[in-house]
Simulated scan of single mutants.
Amino acid sequence: MPLVYMCVRPQRGAADAEYESFRSMSQVGGDQLEMHDLVHDPLPPDAFERWSGFLVGGSPFNVTDPSSTKTDVQLRLEADLERIAAAAAAGTTAALFTCYGIGVVTRMLGGEVSRRFPEDTGPATVALTPAGEHDPLFGGLASRFTVLTAHKEGSGATPPGSVLLATNEACPVQAFRVGDWLYATQFHPEASTHAFVERMEIYRNGGYFESDDFDTLAGRVLASSVTEPGRILTAFARG
Results as ranks from 00 to 15, higher is better:
L3Q: 10
C7K: 05
A17H: 09
E18V: 01
Y19R: 00
Y19C: 10
D31Y: 06
Q32F: 03
E34P: 02
D41R: 04
P42W: 07
P42R: 04
E49T: 12
W51Y: 15
G53I: 02
F54P: 06
L55S: 04
G58F: 02
V63F: 01
T64S: 07
T64F: 10
S67L: 14
T69F: 02
R83D: 14
T92C: 01
C99R: 06
C99M: 02
Y100T: 07
G101L: 03
R107F: 08
G111C: 03
E112A: 13
V113G: 07
P118Q: 08
G122D: 05
P123C: 05
A124F: 09
A124Y: 08
A124T: 13
T125S: 11
V126P: 02
A127T: 15
D135L: 04
F138H: 03
A142G: 12
S143E: 14
R144E: 15
K152T: 12
S155D: 06
G156F: 05
L165V: 12
A166I: 09
C171V: 07
W181D: 15
E190H: 11
S192K: 08
G207L: 02
E210R: 07
E210A: 11
S225Q: 12
S225D: 15
E228M: 07
G230A: 10
A235S: 15
F236E: 14
G239A: 15
